[in-house]
């Protein structure tokens, strides 16, 4: 076998191996990490917004939930944006 044939054969084998690996479904641990990351990306900004909003409202005179509601909504939007960006990057 010449070097040229060896190169074509080895490259073909590597490409096939790569394609098989990419087609394989993710394992349980992989899915767990992926799902966990998505959950965290969505939830962390919402919870952070809620806490920050609650603290800002406590500083205001009288009863107020303006900051809490606004920052929770902002957190939800930010979480959705994070999740979309993460999925786009991964695919």
């Amino acid at each position: 076998m010449t070097d040229r044939q060896k190169l074509v054969e080895a490259t073909g084998r590597d490409i096939k191996r790569l394609e098989i690996r990419e087609r394989q479904p993710a394992g349980f641990v992989g899915m767990l990490f992926y799902g966990g990351t998505l959950g965290l990306l969505l939830v962390v900004p919402v919870v952070a917004g809620a806490y920050l909003g609650r603290w800002l409202d406590s500083l205001a005179a009288g009863y107020s939930v303006r900051w809490t509601v606004s920052l929770i909504v902002l957190g939800v939007l930010l979480g959705i944006y994070n999740v979309v960006r993460f999925i786009r990057e991964k695919t």
Partner: peptide
């Protein structure tokens, strides 16, 4: 592209041969 790379490579090798 992986698929076309193999084709290009085979063609190039055939040309060299």
């Amino acid at each position: 592209e992986r698929g076309t790379l193999l084709q290009q490579l085979s063609a190039e090798m055939a040309r060299t041969e």
